[in-house]
Computed example of a mutant assay.
Amino acid sequence: MRETKNKPVSILLVEDDDIDAMSVERAMRKMQLFNPVIRAIDGIEALEILRAGQVERPFIILLDLNLPRMGGLELLRVIREDEALRDSVIFILTTSNNEEEIAQAYQKNVAGYLVKSSVNQNFDPILAFLEHYWRLVEIPH
């Protein structure tokens, strides 16, 4: 996640839980990942941010499923139906390990489904995984 073709990867963190959002940002600082992070607290706000171009490309979306107003699966559906956004790279980052939700997410072409294990989640391994992933793949600009 440090850079792709000399350009930092921006992150849209769609997470309504303040503790989880702070934990992700703290883990990024600890790993010295200084990617731009923009946070949305629900799907409606995330969609507004994306459509306004407030997240610079290339970007990834870390998406929680359990959100107020517009949930993660609904946001995922809207993004995949939007010509300008459908190529967005999205990782689900949620507490839900419901098989039906996992299947629905993969049917909408998510890059990965990561389950937060507890309230006191250590996000270091998840962010390390994402950093290695982005070193190896090309992402849409």
Rank of each mutant, 00 (worst) to 15 (best):
S118I: 06
I102C: 10
D87K: 14
T94S: 14
Q121D: 04
E100D: 12
E101P: 02
A105L: 01
V110P: 00
N122E: 05
I139V: 14
V115S: 06
I139H: 08
E101A: 07
Q104M: 08
P140I: 11
P140T: 11
A105R: 00
S96W: 05
Q104I: 03
Y113M: 05
E99S: 15
T95K: 12
L93H: 05
T95W: 12
E99G: 08
V119F: 14
E99K: 14
I139S: 12
V119C: 04
L114R: 05
F129H: 11
H132L: 08
N97Y: 14
E99L: 14
Q107T: 02
E99I: 13
S118W: 05
Y106T: 01
N98D: 15
N98V: 08
I139P: 02
V110Q: 00
N109H: 13
V89C: 12
V137N: 08
N98S: 08
S96G: 06
H132I: 06
T94H: 04
E99Q: 15
P140Y: 09
W134Y: 15
A103H: 06
I102A: 04
E100F: 07
N98E: 11
L93R: 02
L127F: 11
I126G: 00
Q104K: 14
Q104P: 01
I92V: 15
K116C: 10
I126T: 15
A128C: 04
R135D: 14
V137F: 09
I102L: 11
A111P: 00
K108A: 03
D124C: 07
T95I: 10
